[in-house]
Computed example of a mutant assay.
Amino acid sequence: MPQITIEHNPSEERLQELGVADWAIWEKEVSRFPIDFDETETAYILEGEILVTPEGGEPVRILPGDLVVFPAGLNSQWEVVKPLRKHYSYD
């Protein structure tokens, strides 16, 4: 089963190396919905809080300052607990 990986509070150097500031921004109101990842997404959380539950797995809490990798093949249920704002990029 594909695993979500989280890097908490990566350094400015790491963010610059990845080019996070140039990534697109996605915003979402408080809601629940399924997301299935056909390709790997890397996201950097700017604001909000999400609980992501992988199919057959435990919920993962994602907070501002987290750099998250959602691997290709991940099927998940999202609960946006606080309005979300994130940078994202697909591999």
Score class of each variant (00 low, 15 high):
residue 73 G to S: 01
residue 27 E to H: 07
residue 54 P to H: 05
residue 45 I to D: 07
residue 57 G to R: 00
residue 51 L to P: 04
residue 86 K to R: 08
residue 59 P to T: 05
residue 41 E to T: 10
residue 24 A to E: 15
residue 15 L to Q: 07
residue 52 V to M: 07
residue 33 F to H: 11
residue 15 L to A: 07
residue 73 G to W: 00
residue 85 R to F: 00
residue 91 D to E: 15
residue 80 V to Y: 11
residue 6 I to A: 02
residue 8 H to Y: 10
residue 24 A to M: 13
residue 16 Q to G: 10
residue 75 N to I: 11
residue 23 W to C: 05
residue 84 L to F: 02
residue 30 V to W: 12
residue 10 P to W: 08
residue 43 A to E: 02
residue 69 V to E: 05
residue 16 Q to A: 14
residue 57 G to H: 01
residue 22 D to N: 15
residue 64 P to E: 11
residue 53 T to Y: 04
residue 17 E to K: 13
residue 49 E to T: 15
residue 85 R to E: 03
residue 59 P to C: 03
residue 53 T to K: 03
residue 77 Q to L: 07
residue 52 V to K: 03
residue 24 A to W: 08
residue 6 I to E: 01
residue 51 L to D: 08
residue 19 G to Y: 03
residue 31 S to M: 09
residue 67 L to N: 10
residue 14 R to P: 03
residue 24 A to Q: 14
residue 60 V to K: 12
residue 3 Q to Y: 01
residue 43 A to N: 02
residue 23 W to G: 06
residue 48 G to W: 11
residue 34 P to A: 15
residue 55 E to Y: 08
residue 67 L to F: 12
residue 10 P to M: 08
residue 73 G to H: 00
residue 20 V to C: 06
residue 73 G to P: 01
residue 34 P to D: 14
residue 54 P to A: 08
residue 78 W to L: 13
residue 32 R to Q: 15
residue 28 K to L: 05
residue 59 P to E: 04
residue 46 L to I: 07
residue 37 F to I: 02
residue 16 Q to R: 13
residue 66 D to A: 13
residue 57 G to D: 00
residue 43 A to Q: 01
residue 33 F to D: 09
residue 23 W to A: 05
residue 70 F to R: 03
residue 13 E to T: 15
residue 86 K to D: 04
residue 24 A to T: 14
residue 1 M to P: 04
residue 78 W to S: 11
residue 5 T to F: 00
residue 69 V to W: 00
residue 83 P to G: 10
residue 58 E to M: 11
residue 39 E to D: 10
residue 80 V to A: 10
residue 77 Q to M: 07
residue 63 L to V: 13
residue 58 E to S: 14
residue 4 I to E: 02
residue 86 K to L: 07
residue 13 E to D: 15
residue 89 S to W: 12
residue 23 W to Q: 04
residue 41 E to L: 11
residue 56 G to R: 09
residue 39 E to G: 09
residue 78 W to C: 14
residue 56 G to Y: 09
residue 63 L to D: 05
residue 55 E to K: 10
residue 71 P to V: 02
residue 45 I to F: 13
